[in-house]
Simulated assay, not measured.
Amino acid sequence: MITIEWLYVLAGLAFAAYAVLSALDRNNAKRLGNAAFWGLMALSLLGGSWLGDLGNGLLVLGLAGLAGSGAMGRGDPPTTSDAEREAWSAKLGNRLFLPALVIPATALIGTLLYSYTPLAHYHLFQPKRETYILLGLGVLLALILIFAWLRPPASAPLQEGRRLIDSIGWAAVLPQMLAALGVVFAAAGVGNIVGEATRAAIPEGSVFLTVAVYALGMAAFTMVMGNAFAAFPVMASAIGVPLLIQGYGGDAAVIGAIGMLAGFCGTLMTPMAANFNLVPAALLELRDRNGVIRAQVATALPLLAVNIGLIYLFCFR
């Protein structure tokens, strides 16, 4: 049976290659910082199951220290020139996107075939991890297609991968860090603390004020965690369930759905949501790293106010 650990190994080998290539890149003044960061990521993926809680905790502190100290810098690996890319684009046109489309097609079609045909009876993949594994298989198939079709140098995929990962930098691993933060907050009982503070500060019977604190809290915790899905358990256990649903008889569906939308308003305004706000800026090579966030604030704040009104209007009909 192919398990999710196989995918971890595949990703870990890729990060290990980025670490080695970074260490050998003498044109990058911060090559050792890059090598150390991607090397720690490789260690986490390849050996995290054996490092234990203390080992993984120290590894995360190492990643945070390297990122926070400015030890990382963008490399400039030897990839194709602008002229070569323009020539390939003129020759092949939109067909250049075919390898990229192989990846989602493999994940989608493979999952459907595995789930709704007799293939499922062979137990080829770890249960509930089929799509992830097929996504990794799609990457391998796309690489095979590229080498058979375009015949690039053997190191091209790794060098291009390093160029991309260096452009994104430490923000590439922020979603994983924030997911772990959500678990830590829940285990620490942050929801109970917030709920007690809210009950002490808001007069009993102030429905609108409770709704406002709930929605603003969703946005604020999302800005801290970078993900509304991580913020929701905290605010639901603090205010959503005990006060709005059990206390005032609110509609749970409205509180959950529109509460998540309020959290997404926070997503628009935080660099912690790196995959939405920092990664695009890095890939587009914007001069202002927070340019995406600045452009979204004018939408996020009015939308948050609208969500507060919607919860109040539709939750207690």
Rank of each mutant, 00 (worst) to 15 (best):
residue 136 G to K: 11
residue 222 T to E: 08
residue 4 I to K: 12
residue 161 G to A: 04
residue 136 G to W: 02
residue 121 H to W: 00
residue 262 A to Y: 07
residue 52 G to L: 01
residue 209 L to D: 06
residue 138 G to S: 10
residue 247 G to C: 02
residue 30 K to W: 08
residue 260 M to V: 15
residue 143 L to V: 15
residue 4 I to R: 14
residue 222 T to A: 08
residue 180 A to S: 12
residue 24 L to M: 11
residue 78 P to W: 00
residue 300 A to F: 05
residue 146 I to N: 11
residue 72 M to D: 08
residue 206 S to T: 12
residue 11 A to D: 14
residue 316 F to V: 08
residue 78 P to E: 01
residue 113 L to V: 06
residue 9 V to E: 00
residue 251 D to P: 09
residue 253 A to H: 14
residue 216 L to D: 09
residue 79 T to M: 02
residue 249 G to N: 06
residue 131 T to C: 11
residue 19 A to C: 00
residue 53 D to H: 03
residue 92 L to A: 14
residue 202 I to H: 06
residue 128 K to V: 15
residue 300 A to K: 06
residue 46 L to M: 03
residue 146 I to C: 14
residue 175 P to A: 05
residue 73 G to D: 03
residue 17 A to M: 11
residue 94 N to G: 15
residue 311 I to G: 13
residue 287 R to C: 01
residue 215 A to I: 06
residue 317 R to W: 09
residue 2 I to V: 15
residue 72 M to R: 07
residue 293 I to E: 05
residue 33 G to K: 08
residue 226 G to H: 11
residue 33 G to I: 09
residue 276 F to W: 10
residue 29 A to Y: 13
residue 25 D to H: 06
residue 235 M to P: 14
residue 230 A to F: 10
residue 51 L to D: 04
residue 160 E to L: 11
residue 294 R to F: 13
residue 156 A to C: 01
residue 71 A to F: 04
residue 293 I to A: 10
residue 26 R to T: 06
residue 28 N to I: 06
residue 94 N to W: 15
residue 118 P to W: 02
residue 2 I to L: 11
residue 158 L to R: 02
residue 172 A to N: 02
residue 148 A to L: 07
residue 93 G to I: 09
residue 314 F to D: 10
residue 218 M to S: 14
residue 132 Y to K: 14
residue 72 M to S: 03
residue 117 T to H: 03
residue 217 G to P: 12
residue 273 A to I: 03
residue 302 P to D: 12
residue 174 L to V: 13
residue 163 R to M: 05
residue 290 N to T: 14
residue 270 T to C: 01
residue 154 A to E: 05
residue 275 N to P: 04
residue 76 D to L: 04
residue 140 L to E: 13
residue 178 L to F: 05
residue 46 L to I: 09
residue 51 L to T: 04
residue 77 P to S: 01
residue 255 I to L: 13
residue 258 I to F: 15
residue 183 V to F: 13
residue 47 G to D: 00
residue 15 F to V: 07
residue 5 E to N: 13
residue 258 I to G: 12
residue 176 Q to S: 02
residue 37 F to K: 09
residue 267 T to P: 07
residue 276 F to Y: 10
residue 39 G to K: 08
residue 284 L to W: 12
residue 21 L to D: 08
residue 165 I to P: 03
residue 255 I to A: 10
residue 200 A to V: 05
residue 225 M to N: 02
residue 36 A to C: 13
residue 263 G to P: 14
residue 87 A to T: 13
residue 211 V to E: 08
residue 161 G to M: 01
residue 71 A to V: 02
residue 176 Q to I: 08
residue 235 M to Q: 12
residue 114 Y to L: 08
residue 250 G to I: 04
residue 27 N to M: 06
residue 22 S to W: 04
residue 79 T to N: 08
residue 285 E to K: 05
residue 217 G to R: 12
residue 56 N to H: 01
residue 158 L to S: 10
residue 298 A to W: 10
residue 156 A to P: 03
residue 161 G to Q: 04
residue 240 G to T: 11
residue 76 D to C: 01
residue 217 G to L: 06
residue 84 E to I: 09
residue 76 D to T: 00
residue 109 I to E: 14
residue 1 M to D: 01
residue 44 S to I: 01
